[in-house]
Deep mutational scan, measured.
Amino acid sequence: KKVTINGVEIKFNNPEEAVKFALELAKRLNLRIEFHGDQIKIE
């Protein structure tokens, strides 16, 4: 399963991993996060 985070394609074994990764990243950098299907936007 491929997920695009800020235009960067990252391959994950499952979608939950991708979501956890994105949330952790957003929390660490104190950023806002948006989900659009397989696209995750962090700003």
Rank of each mutant, 00 (worst) to 15 (best):
7 G>K: 03
29 L>H: 10
11 K>G: 08
4 T>N: 07
7 G>L: 05
25 L>G: 00
17 E>I: 06
21 F>Y: 10
3 V>H: 03
31 L>M: 13
24 E>L: 07
34 E>H: 07
30 N>Y: 04
15 P>F: 14
39 Q>G: 11
21 F>H: 03
32 R>C: 10
32 R>M: 08
16 E>R: 10
36 H>M: 11
27 K>V: 08
24 E>I: 06
29 L>P: 07
2 K>Q: 10
2 K>R: 12
11 K>F: 15
37 G>S: 08
41 K>W: 13
21 F>E: 02
9 E>G: 05
41 K>M: 13
34 E>C: 05
16 E>K: 09
29 L>R: 00
7 G>Y: 04
15 P>S: 13
25 L>R: 00
43 E>I: 15
4 T>E: 05
21 F>A: 04
28 R>K: 12
34 E>A: 04
25 L>N: 02
24 E>N: 07
20 K>E: 10
40 I>G: 00
28 R>I: 12
15 P>M: 13
17 E>D: 13
25 L>I: 12
13 N>G: 09
11 K>E: 15
38 D>C: 05
25 L>V: 09
18 A>P: 01
32 R>I: 11
23 L>A: 04
12 F>P: 01
20 K>H: 08
8 V>I: 13
8 V>Q: 08
24 E>V: 05
33 I>Y: 04
18 A>Q: 02
29 L>Q: 06
42 I>A: 01
38 D>R: 02
38 D>P: 03
41 K>H: 11
31 L>W: 11
35 F>E: 03
17 E>C: 15
18 A>N: 03
4 T>R: 03
12 F>G: 02
12 F>M: 04
3 V>I: 09
23 L>E: 10
39 Q>T: 15
27 K>Y: 12
13 N>H: 11
3 V>N: 01
43 E>R: 08
40 I>D: 01
28 R>T: 08
41 K>I: 15
31 L>G: 14
43 E>M: 14
22 A>K: 01
16 E>D: 11
6 N>R: 05
20 K>I: 08
6 N>W: 15
7 G>M: 04
16 E>P: 04
36 H>K: 11
10 I>H: 12
22 A>M: 09
37 G>R: 08
28 R>G: 05
43 E>N: 12
12 F>D: 00
9 E>T: 14
10 I>A: 03
21 F>M: 04
3 V>P: 04
26 A>P: 01
43 E>P: 03
9 E>Q: 09
22 A>I: 15
4 T>H: 06
7 G>W: 05
17 E>N: 07
35 F>Q: 03
35 F>V: 08
19 V>A: 06
26 A>K: 02
41 K>G: 02
23 L>K: 07
32 R>A: 08
34 E>D: 07
29 L>N: 06
29 L>A: 04
10 I>F: 13
43 E>C: 14
30 N>A: 04
17 E>P: 03
13 N>T: 12
23 L>M: 10
26 A>T: 04
33 I>V: 14
20 K>L: 10
5 I>Y: 13
42 I>G: 00
2 K>W: 14
26 A>V: 06
22 A>D: 00
33 I>M: 03
20 K>Q: 10
33 I>W: 04
17 E>Y: 08
33 I>H: 00
32 R>Q: 08
3 V>G: 02
43 E>S: 14
36 H>A: 11
40 I>M: 03
13 N>M: 11
42 I>H: 01
6 N>I: 06
18 A>W: 09
25 L>P: 00
10 I>D: 00
16 E>A: 11
4 T>M: 12
26 A>Y: 04
34 E>T: 13
37 G>W: 07
10 I>L: 12
4 T>P: 02
19 V>H: 07
10 I>K: 03
28 R>S: 10
